[in-house]
């Protein structure tokens, strides 16, 4: 039951983007996001330039574009809202492909879609070229409060453990003939989630005990 090697978002490589110091990459991502968000909606050529910029960084990093595109599926729920906007917003109407939609909604939806996608692509590029450990070290160098970095490092460490536990619970459920196909099965999933929460909570307590046993006093040594 050993975990796979490499983090699922990380793509192993040795390009200039991979080697760049993590804190610079985080700052670059932050600056890029602020610029993207601050760009007025209608300036489409500029958004085109942003896309070209990200594509260039991805090309330099030698991460296959498909690798990043596949992972940008996380964006789908947001896209759903972006697509919904033209239909629910009010104001002057306009016609697109024979369907009447709100003009404000349309521009807002397109802006949300474009800005959101840019953000997801940029973040995934950071994740693909930087080990989670390095991201944390970078945040630490940027003087993020130590407690926050600690919490995030625990999250990175135990993500695999908790998802592994979740997988095993699912397999155990399915081995007894259960699979969640419709809402009637949701109570079972809810109970599983509850059990998972309690197990994780108890694991947290055991981890704390093990830390105390090695002389932890509330501050991470550095």
């Amino acid at each position: 039951m050993g975990a796979g090697h490499g983090h699922k978002l990380h793509f192993h490589g040795h390009s200039a983007v991979h080697r760049a110091p993590a804190h610079l990459k985080i700052l670059a991502l932050l600056a890029f996001m602020i610029v993207v968000v601050a760009t007025p909606r209608g300036w489409y050529p500029l958004f085109g330039a942003y896309v070209v910029a990200i594509a260039a960084v991805i090309a330099v990093s030698r991460v296959p574009p498909g690798y990043i595109l596949k992972r940008s599926v996380v964006e789908v729920p947001f896209l759903f809202f972006a697509v919904l906007l033209p239909f629910v917003a009010t104001g002057p109407q306009t016609e697109v492909l024979g369907v009447t939609v709100s003009q404000h909604g349309l521009t807002a939806g397109v802006a949300l879609l474009v800005k959101g996608t840019l953000g997801v692509l940029a973040s995934l590029t950071l994740a693909a070229t930087t080990e989670p450990q390095d991201v944390l070290a970078g945040l630490e160098r940027l003087r993020l409060p130590a407690q926050l970095v600690q919490i995030m490092s625990f999250m990175v460490r135990y993500l695999d453990v908790v998802t592994g536990e979740m997988q095993r619970m699912r397999i155990a459920r399915e081995s007894r003939g259960f699979s969640a196909r419709n809402p009637r099965h949701w109570p079972v999933l809810a109970r599983s989630a509850g059990a998972l929460f309690i197990r994780s909570y108890e694991r947290g307590e055991r981890v704390h005990l093990a830390m105390l046993s090695r002389g932890y006093t509330g501050k991470m040594p550095r």
Partner: peptide, 18 residues
Amino acid sequence: RRRVGVVFQDPDDQLFMG
């Protein structure tokens, strides 16, 4: 706690750093 070293049963409880 320096003198008594306890190794817990589940190594995932003990190993929590990166």
